[in-house]
């Protein structure tokens, strides 16, 4: 039990340190680099043209659809990982169960395909 928590303590410390290590050179650079801001230097760089209007505009719904399809397959993966992990200890029934699970989702993929939801326009 303590052993398991020790593993996670390692991961926890890693999670804290991982963003700090790359921040170190950024901090050093901030200390020794010159700092002479002016309005033109800090202007938004859009190929030399002045920026028009608000950047944070509404975006296409298509990205959202791809996001949703991705989410569904991501959740599918979460179910398949334990299945694959235990697979060698199980019988043929497990293969059938996994096959049905994957088949149902492949259905969804082909539905999306047929409805042209996978077309990038």
């Amino acid at each position: 039990m303590t052993n398991v928590l020790n593993e996670w303590a390692f991961i926890g410390v890693f999670f804290l340190l991982a963003p700090l290590l790359p921040s170190l050179p950024i901090a050093i650079a901030a200390l020794i680099s010159p700092r002479k801001p002016n309005a033109i230097k800090q202007a938004t760089y859009e190929c030399g043209l002045e920026t028009v209007g608000d950047t944070w505009v509404q975006f296409k719904v298509q990205y959202y659809v791809f996001g949703l399809i991705f989410l569904v397959f991501d959740v599918e993966m979460v179910f398949l990982f334990p299945w694959a992990l235990a697979y060698q200890q199980l019988d043929f029934f497990a293969f059938a169960a996994g096959l049905l699970f994957i088949f149902l989702l492949t259905d969804a993929l082909f539905y999306a395909w047929g409805k042209n939801a996978l077309e990038w326009s």
Partner: peptide, 17 residues
């Protein structure tokens, strides 16, 4: 769960398109 996920995809496509 698989069926539910399939329904989610169908729903998403219907709403978005």
């Amino acid at each position: 769960a698989s069926l539910l996920l399939t329904a989610a995809i169908i729903g998403a496509i219907l709403i978005a398109r």
